[in-house]
Design a protein around this nucleic acid. Structure first.
Lengths: 252, 252
DNA sequence: CGTGGTCTTGACACGATTCAAGCCCCGTGG
DNA sequence: CCACGGGGCTTGAATCGTGTCAAGACCACG
């Protein structure tokens, strides 16, 4: 986010009122006045799949919303051990109001487009616009719940349960209208990342992830469709296999 | 928190202006008007060590600040697997604005006293008092960072590193003025909980925790002082042993 | 002086990692 | 066109860390 080259020309940016992502972003509740201010300062920037958006330790110059693509926040120890701690989708907020430097790295898993604001300005606006502050609080509370659910996954679930958990999470992200779905047609999930990245989320090695996939295939929970996509014949069964008590949340 | 019996008589409650905890609580930035409203509706309630403050699934009637003692938030699977996901100290906020029912259980580790507000009223106040909202956002962002650091601990650290991590965390909580401490006098840490609870935080069994303590004693990182207290001859060394790159944060 | 809870320690089992080999697929260059 | 090389994936065998089960010690309390 600190590397804004090349920002798209402002004149070319789609206007906020037409923005599809706004309904679920920080700006969801912003009034006309606040929205106008955001609009005046927004910049779009894009990152190719695999690139790093923010390095740990970087000065945090920007904050913003994911417009398209999927990014990953991760925490890395000096000796190379890595733990992915957040999977960020369109509408999600990137940045950390109140901190000057990034603690975590952010990487683009797929191609990512961001709608960014200069951080200091955004923080000032946050103080003046309660609806913005309120919405951000709401989003951060959801992130906190997500992180806490994930802690259970990391701490107490087996490799198979973890693998299913992330699959379930991805299904929810990719099929927005799942809750009311009763039809029996197969769900399709695209795991978008490599086995290694998959393992980074679950604290598993790429070999273990691979083994779990073969087992899940053998047991009929998933069946390969494309290179990175699987069909899920029985989503309820997959949820069950993830060991979750609280199903249907889209959370871990 | 839903079980407020017996609330102390309101007339007997210490006034907010004299409150020691306020400096670090949600109400830290509240203006006189907001503070007066909070004061009018606050209730103190106490829970003995070991008791449950909120059960998962409970209706969330209250939100509030820990005045004294230490509590623990935890996530439990049906089959009994348990993961503690938050260690809450005086000043910390308990409750989840925006949700009607508790997702996690909260238990008192030591005797706990809470300063609580009726949740709906608190949420209404949150909308009207930007300083309150802003402060809560700040606190929740810190909680989020804490949870994410913890994910690294759970996912990627060894039993020894985890044990040291929690010890370091407890030291920071119990010795407020550690940052500028250069003196070589021994630090004392009280682990306040049982081996089992300790393990619930670290996703370890009580046996493993016990073994790690024995090893850490043998290696001179800790030495027993009382039943639940240890002296730490070399705090830097303990931090090093915790495997943290970012030391000195009081975080995991 | 027993009783129950907590802690320690040992022996063994098991799940995930590590190390290693080989496969598949795709892009590149001869 | 095919050979080559590399990245990602799969699979196997051995290893290691932590869990499980079990026994006994310690200590507070009735």
């Amino acid at each position: 986010m600190q590397d804004l080259t090349p920002p798209l020309a402002k004149s070319g940016l789609p206007p906020c009122v037409l923005c599809q992502v706004r309904a679920i972003g920080v700006c969801a509740k912003a009034d006309d006045n606040t929205l106008a201010k955001l609009e005046r300062h927004k910049v779009y920037c894009s990152y190719p799949a695999g690139s790093t958006i923010v390095y740990a330790g970087d000065e945090l110059k920007y904050a913003g919303t994911i417009m398209a693509g999927v990014a990953c926040i991760s925490h890395i120890l000096e000796d190379g051990r890595r733990q992915a701690i957040g999977l960020m989708h369109p509408g999600n907020f990137l940045g950390r109001p109140g901190k000057d430097h990034a603690v975590y790295a952010i990487e683009a898993i797929t191609d990512v487009t961001l709608c960014g604001f200069e951080r200091k300005g955004f923080e000032r606006l946050l103080l003046k616009a309660p609806e913005l502050n309120d919405r951000l609080l709401e989003m951060m509370l959801n992130e906190l719940d997500l992180a806490r659910d994930w802690m259970l996954t990391l701490g107490r679930k087996t490799a198979r349960e973890r693998t299913c958990s992330l699959l379930v999470h991805l299904v929810y992200q990719q099929n927005s209208s799942i809750k009311d779905r009763t039809s029996s047609e197969d769900l399709i999930v695209d795991i978008i990342m490599t086995r290694e990245q998959f393992g980074d989320f679950l604290a598993l090695t790429l070999e273990t992830v691979s083994r779990q996939f073969t087992l899940l295939k053998k047991d009929g929970f998933i069946s390969p469709v494309g290179k990175t996509t699987f069909a899920i014949p029985d989503f309820r069964a997959l949820i069950e296999e993830a060991g979750d008590d609280t199903d249907g949340d889209g959370l871990f």
